[in-house]
Design a protein around this nucleic acid. Structure first.
Ligand SMILES: [Mn+2]
Ligand SMILES: [Mn+2]
Ligand SMILES: [Zn+2]
Ligand SMILES: [Zn+2]
Lengths: 142, 142
DNA sequence: TTGTTATTTATAATAATTCTAAACTTTATG
DNA sequence: CATAAAGTTTAGAATTATTATAAATAACAA
């Protein structure tokens, strides 16, 4: 967990100017004890409703994409109608609860890394991630 | 691989009327030796350009969703700007080539099934799938 | 056949996301 | 500091994928 002043340095170090908007978004995303998953809309709503700050939606998009490019966020696709982002940028696995649409992190202690026995020739493996879909028993699979 | 006449029976059996449009889409999707991945747009383009047939885009959407609901297609999320569908409806894993955006199937012989050591309490595991992202070595990861 | 119900279709609506270009901010330089 | 250059924010428009609507048509059962 970083302190407020450190965000400015980190941004500058990444070649991003530490603007008011970016610093606020850093606070919301990174000044916490645990990583989490969010959509652009969650984030924009949080900023405008909970924090009563005004950041243009275009800026929220710009910032999230800039942070992703710098490796501070990771994009996740479970569902194609909107993008999810993850403040946990390490390679890790997910449970996806189909009842609640909740996405839960887990690492190699909970889900053992699958062994890749063959690879596409000439290509390098960039990531290996497991998605486990769960639901209550009586729930019809989507 | 099914013959033309069998599609009508299969559709009727599923409670779907075997219309001209659905039969044509069955042909395009299922009258082949290998399963494959496609987007709605790929499919619509194939029908209108290669086959010179006219099926309304709304019907292509309707049909693909109907087939998915009946379990003849499976939806895949790698990328959140559009939905991919898979004619391979078994539980299986994928390589995703970031250079070409190509999605390649593989089964438990190539990627060993990951062991799930803990599950969310009260929930049942519906699927366990691995996504391996690959790229040429010099390629910057997205 | 004839009525009922399902399906197709064109088109409009919606929702997520990206683009644009002008205003504003931050940073570099003298 | 003053000023210019470069980067950023913003409102709003544009784009794209997808879903909804409602009238016309096709399939099916009686
Ligand atoms: Mn979807
Ligand atoms: Mn979309
Ligand atoms: Zn995660
Ligand atoms: Zn597949």
């Amino acid at each position: 967990m970083l302190k407020n002043t450190e965000f400015a340095d980190k941004l500058r170090f990444s070649g991003l100017r530490p603007t008011k908007q970016r610093l606020k978004i850093c606070e919301v995303l990174f000044k916490r004890d645990h990583t989490f998953h969010f959509t652009i809309n969650d984030l924009a709503k949080n900023i405008s409703e909970q924090l009563n700050e005004k950041i243009s939606l275009a800026t929220v998009y710009n910032t999230v994409h800039a942070f992703k490019k710098k490796g501070y966020l990771k994009e996740i696709s479970i569902n194609s109608d909107k993008s999810y982002f993850d403040t946990n940028t390490t390679s890790h696995h997910h449970f996806f609860d189909e009842d609640t649409n909740e996405l839960i992190d887990c690492d190699d202690e909970v889900i053992e890394a699958p062994k890749i026995k063959k690879n596409i020739s000439g290509k390098k493996i960039k990531s290996v991630e497991v998605l486990v879909k769960v639901a209550t028993d009586y729930h019809n699979q989507k």
